[in-house]
């Protein structure tokens, strides 16, 4: 997938128009992102901490941005991370991926590469086997190439 500069600008304009009318949520996520978080947590507001996102401060190209997530958990049969939801709140659709762990995962860590349409927040929400939820947010600046390249 290639996101052209024009599309990126269009998205920015759209998001700006949207924010003018939408009520602002604590971390300024879009309503769609907030709904996705609530659907994942069963309505609960996640606590900061325990989960941490590893993203570059600046992505050279929005088509391939490395993202890593680590959850502080013993990963035993009694206490483990069930899943981690990754969202990107400035994309046409915020859903990125959901990792599902088990006690056999050994460590609650995963990495992948994602597409970001523009500079925006990447969000990770972790759900533990006891139902508690945690969240981390990182901003990634997406640069736009030089000449049409």
């Amino acid at each position: 997938m290639t996101i052209t500069r024009r599309q990126a600008l269009g998205l920015t304009a759209g998001a700006a128009a949207f924010l003018t009318f939408a009520p602002r949520i604590s971390f300024a996520a879009t309503a769609e992102t907030d709904a996705a978080i609530k659907a994942f947590t069963g309505g609960a507001t996640p606590t900061e901490g325990t989960v941490s996102l590893d993203t570059p401060e600046i992505a050279e190209n929005g088509n391939t941005v490395p993202v890593g997530v680590t959850v502080d958990s013993p990963m035993t049969e009694d206490s483990y991370v069930e899943s981690v939801l990754i969202l990107a709140d400035g994309n046409p659709s915020p859903a990125v991926a959901t990792f599902h762990f088990t006690a056999m995962s050994g460590a609650a860590e995963a990495k992948t590469r994602i597409r970001l349409a523009k500079t925006q927040n990447v969000i990770a929400v972790a759900k533990m086997n006891d139902g508690s939820t945690f969240m981390d947010t990182k901003e990634v600046k997406v640069t736009i190439g030089g000449c049409g390249g």
């Binding site: 290639t2 050279e60 190209n61 088509n63 640069t143 736009i144 190439g145 030089g146 000449c147 390249g149």
Partner: peptide
Amino acid sequence: NYIRADHLSQGNVNGFPTYRLKQS
């Protein structure tokens, strides 16, 4: 130097064909 956000290289071709993130 930079041309907008692109860091200009010497334009050497020792890595071609190249995997380019833009085209994936």
